[in-house]
Design a protein around this nucleic acid. Sequence first.
DNA 1: ACGATGATGAAC
DNA 2: TTCATCATCGTA
Length: 177
Amino acid sequence: MRILKNKILTTDFFNQATLLVTQKLLGKFLVRKIKNQTISFMITEVEGYDGPNDLACHACKGKTKRNEVMFSQAGHFYTYLIYGMYWMLNIVTGPEDYPAAILIRGTKEIVGPGRLTKQLKIDKSFNNKLATPENNLWFEDRGIKVYKKNILQTPRIGVSYAGPIWSIKPYRFILKT
DNA sequence: ACGATGATGAAC
DNA sequence: TTCATCATCGTA
């Protein structure tokens, strides 16, 4: 009998074309360790924010203190506060100096980006941290095969400010369950 | 349908 | 220094 080892996703995985990684994240697991409890969630909803030309991407107007982590090496977390209440969890993708990231919007267990971070106790302390077990928050491939026919592709949520072209780009991917 | 609630960045 | 804007959610 073959023993499948859960593979931790590192910089190599995230340092690929953002939209490719975005789709590949479906069916992967977000793992969170709090004290001695380790809990994991299967990712089912994500959105890609891809580079300086993407007007929905926070970094499209250049580097600022808030978004500077998007320009760093792939595999870092980008967290920020929205609506004065909710932390958004993103994972940086692509090569250094190319600002891109993926917003984790939902899992099989918890749907909604704000709910997810609330329940997993994710806040600004994760910003700029690498996705590793040492930082108590990371991603794993557990060998789940995702078929294209089970992926739903739609425009991103809440980005009407990005204009007629970029607000309707179908960069949101949902895994049908 | 709307209010909560505060960081951000751009205008002044 | 002020102000509109937000990658949302829970309560109606």
